[in-house]
Structures are given as structure tokens and as C-alpha cells.
């Protein structure tokens, strides 16, 4: 088996005294798509923040392509090719659309620049019309496009999307799903967290279901039975 792109073992994370993650294992290979599922408050975002170095796990290890990054600063982990589209989008409202994109620009680890400023604007023509607007002046859908475009400007090998379609009108959400599918098909590994389980299962190679800080299911998407969905996701 080839070396995983990102591998975490036995992650225990806390918010203050609250024990949130109880020994979670996580693995994603190059080009793989993983659906990270679970109800609210089950630890999905905590897991993502632990993987990216924003929250320091009290126990366990995180490795990016074999390199131990458990104690590394978040910016170092990001520079290893990990990009993040956070819940709530994290647009910089005091920067223009253009600046939001430019500030993130970086060549990929192998020196490739597949995603240039021009290509982002081709992919998101709506953004091209609003370059001089402040990030805070955009509609929800436009902000989401900007967050995804900004993440792609770092030419990542792994894109983590946390609730990318939350709060968007159905038509806009459909556009975002089309974009996510395009990113996945371009060979970028993706971790997708979304309430739309059908769409996630349709895209994911593998699904992981979390309940109360533990992974209760981690297997190919086809094996995600109706029982598991019913029991742990409540749909």
C-alpha cells in the first residue's frame, strides 16, 4: 500500500476540560475522496481542526506523507499541501475579492501551479465580476466560491470542505456540488463534510461516520447501509 497523504492515529482532543475526540484514526490517500459524516457536535470539525494543527491533540499522531506534524504550526501543515474551506467560510471581509485570492497564492509542493488567478476566475466567473468588492459584500454563494477559489490558489493536494453548501439556496448549492465534483475529478484529494448525505455518498470513495468523538463506521461508501445511516445520522 502506498504512503497515505494524511494519516492520524489515536487522536484525543479537548476543548478545555471537555474530551471531544476519543482516539480517532483517520487516513486519506492521494486523490481519494472521503465523506466525513455525523450529526452536529459529534466531533467532525474538531477532527479537522486537530488534523490541521489549529487544535493540538493531547494524544495521538498526525502525519502528512509520512512526516510527523503533530506538533507543527498550522501554517507549516498548510504548506504541505492541505487547504481548508471552513464552516462559516472564513472570508476576510476587510480584503477585496481579488486580495482574498492573491494573498493565498502559492505554488504546489511539486512546484506546479495548476490553479492560477486566471483559472480561478474562469472557474468562478461570478467572482471575476466582483474583484474590487470587499469580501463581506458578497452573497453567501459568492462567498463560498471565494473560499473554495482561495483554497485552490494554494495549489493543494488535499482540500477539506466543512459544510460548503450550508445555508445556500438549492440552485447555488447545486453549482457548488458541480465545482466540488470538478475538483475531485482533477485529482485533488477531498474531505467533504455536508448535511446532504446523498450528495456526499455519491462523490465519496470512502465514508467515515462519527458519533460522540469516535469513528463508528469507516469503509467504502457502497457498504454504508441504510441501517448505519438510520442509526447514526438520523435520516
Amino acid at each position: 500500500m502506498s504512503e497515505p497523504l494524511l494519516e492520524a492515529r489515536g487522536i484525543h482532543s479537548y476543548y478545555g476540560a471537555s474530551h471531544i475526540l476519543h482516539g480517532v484514526d483517520f487516513r486519506i490517500d492521494r486523490g481519494e475522496t472521503i465523506g466525513l459524516m455525523g450529526r452536529n457536535g459529534m466531533g467532525k470539525t474538531t477532527l479537522i481542526r486537530s488534523l490541521l494543527g489549529h487544535l493540538r491533540p493531547r494524544a495521538g499522531s498526525v502525519k502528512v506523507r509520512g512526516l510527523d506534524v503533530t506538533q507543527a504550526a498550522p501554517y507549516r501543515i498548510a504548506r504541505l499541501g492541505l487547504a481548508y474551506v471552513p464552516e462559516g467560510r472564513g472570508i476576510f471581509p476587510n480584503l477585496t475579492v481579488r486580495e482574498n485570492l492573491i494573498m493565498a497564492a502559492r505554488a504546489g509542493l511539486d512546484g506546479r501551479c495548476d490553479w492560477t488567478y486566471e483559472r480561478i476566475l474562469d472557474t468562478f466567473p461570478r467572482l471575476a465580476e466582483r474583484l474590487a468588492n470587499g469580501g463581506g459584500e458578497l452573497s453567501g454563494g459568492e462567498q463560498q466560491m471565494l473560499t473554495i477559489g482561495r483554497a485552490l490558489m494554494t495549489n493543494p493536494q488535499l482540500l477539506i470542505l466543512d459544510e460548503a453548501t450550508e445555508g445556500l439556496a438549492p440552485l447555488i448549492a447545486r453549482d457548488i456540488w458541480t465545482i466540488i465534483r470538478g475538483i475531485r475529478d482533477s485529482g485533488i484529494a477531498t474531505v467533504i463534510v455536508d448535511k446532504n448525505y446523498g450528495a456526499v455518498i455519491g462523490l465519496a470513495d470512502r465514508c467515515m461516520v462519527m458519533v460522540k468523538g469516535r469513528a463508528v463506521f469507516d469503509d467504502v461508501a457502497e457498504k454504508l447501509s441504510g441501517d448505519v445511516v438510520q442509526k447514526y445520522l438520523g435520516v
Binding site: A73, P74, G90, T154
Partner: peptide, 8 residues
């Protein structure tokens, strides 16, 4: 946090 997540 977002700036750091973008490699700053």
C-alpha cells in the same frame, strides 16, 4: 486561524 490555514 484562517490566515494560518492558508499558509501564512
Amino acid at each position: 486561524e484562517m490566515a494560518e490555514a492558508l499558509g501564512v
